[in-house]
Design a protein around this nucleic acid. Structure first.
Length: 406
DNA sequence: AGTCCACAGGAAGGGCAGGCGA
DNA sequence: TCGCCTGCCCTTCCTGTGGACT
């Protein structure tokens, strides 16, 4: 009788229980909330700077900087959308283009960037094939045709400058003297303040006509944000205050990163869902933290070409042998060459492998620090940026993916 | 103070593929 | 189809470098 009642309850619960999520998309970075919390002063400042465009005047160029997940992109796109609405209502000629330099095939080269912006403005330009000056001509022609005020918001502008230099920015900041009937204004967004030190002095002063520094969120502000989003994202009773506080606290430790806080909350919810839990618990947040780190590395590794995978494989093999301490470039190159030979593949040169190690470091897959051993030379010291378990899984993936003899 | 190591990393350029315009 | 232009990946050649050793 008791058993029957239990089974009955299980079935009844299954029928009656609500899913954990109401709308998961609320917890992604693409979601723009109606109410942007704790960023009022930044919205006000940026709006004030851009408002002159409604009268057809050129707004100052703005340089926005601050750590990751402090709402720079959110505030900028929000203000631009509102500005566009106001311009349309007002009959002002205003156009804006938002460029994320971190997207592959957008800002790898000056050509790509130009063709991307031109395409956004409605000028069809192939992604390769034309001489750069022809692309510039078409771009300028399109700008003249559009006329009015054109605002270009370039996100992660530091990555752009690193890849293609500052010539393009120089041209853009000088464009208003060259073209009649159109004014172009720039918004540069970056989480790396020091990058401006390498800019041409004229570009630097021009880009920084106005500067806005986005301060990180504190744990209380993150909690407010998460609470607001959780109301929209989760069904009632599926999440409690303690879980939200934990996500906020973990993200606050990492320079107040709202993106990280939202990721933690979303992944914790997904884990709870997968484990058929009644609601999201604090232990799900711990699991989420580990999963996010693994996924981040795995996603990066998946896109790497063959030789980068082999180099990473060599690093993992060596670090495992060395008890997870550290390895040097020379050792990595020897092991990598052995792996290539075993698989009948011609190894790349040490010069190229040195660059691959740098690339892996930039992607956050490993840590590589240049150190000097004095008499015994200068090299890079390579360590894991994550747990050994994560790398062993990555190693298995590489082995399966490239089917080689280890 | 000078030497030397083991690279780091810049510069130049080759080879290939994709795409355009005549 | 062909010449031209670009991006991408790579090699070759080279100079620079921090600090232990002599």
């Amino acid at each position: 009788m008791i058993v029957q009642k239990t089974i009955h309850d299980i079935f009844k619960d299954a029928i009656n229980s609500k899913p954990i999520f109401k709308d998961k998309s609320v917890l992604t970075i693409n979601f723009t909330p109606q109410n942007i919390m704790h960023r009022d002063s930044f919205i006000y400042t940026l709006s004030k700077i851009l408002a002159v465009s409604l009268k057809g005047d050129k707004p100052s160029n703005v340089f926005i900087y601050g750590p990751t997940g402090t709402g720079k992109t959110l505030v900028t796109t929000f203000v631009l959308k509102e500005l566009k609405k106001a311009a349309d209502d007002n009959g002002s000629n205003l156009t804006y283009v938002y460029v994320n330099s971190n997207l592959k095939r957008v800002a790898d080269t000056e050509y790509r960037l130009l063709s991307y912006i031109a395409n956004e403005l409605g000028e069809s330009i192939p992604f390769t094939g034309l001489p750069t000056d022809v692309v510039y001509d078409r771009f300028f022609k399109k700008l003249k045709e559009i006329g009015g005020v054109v605002i270009l918001a370039i996100d992660e502008i530091d990555i752009l400058v690193e890849k293609i230099g500052d010539r393009f920015l120089y041209t853009l900041t000088r464009i208003n003297q060259e073209l009649e009937g159109v004014v172009v204004s720039l918004i540069g967004i970056s989480n790396n303040l020091s990058f401006t030190e390498h800019l041409d002095a004229r570009v630097k002063s021009s880009l920084s006509e106005e500067e806005i520094w986005f301060t990180p969120y504190n744990a209380l502000q993150l909690r407010d944000i998460l609470n607001e989003r959780a109301k929209l994202a989760f069904n009632e009773g599926k999440i409690n205050e303690a879980v939200i506080n934990k996500c906020a606290a973990l993200a606050a430790q990492e320079h107040g990163d709202a993106r990280k806080a939202l990721d933690l909350l979303r992944v914790a919810g997904e884990i709870a869902e997968r484990l058929n839990a009644e609601k999201v618990l604090e232990e799900h947040v711990d699991m989420a933290e580990k999963k996010i780190d693994y996924d981040r590395i795995f996603e990066a590794v998946k896109t790497l070409p063959k030789h980068s995978n082999f180099v990473l494989y060599a690093i993992i093999e060596l670090l495992k042998e060395n008890d997870n301490s550290k390895v040097l470039t020379g050792d990595v190159y020897n092991t990598y060459s052995d792996i290539c030979k075993r698989n009948k593949i011609k190894p790349l040169t040490q010069r190229r492998v040195s660059d691959i190690i740098s690339e892996l470091d930039v992607l956050g897959i490993i840590n590589a620090k240049v150190i000097s051993h004095g008499r015994y030379g200068r090299t890079r010291e390579i360590t894991f940026s994550n747990s050994l378990d994560t790398y062993l899984k990555i190693k298995d993936f590489i082995k399966k993916e490239w089917l080689f003899n280890d």
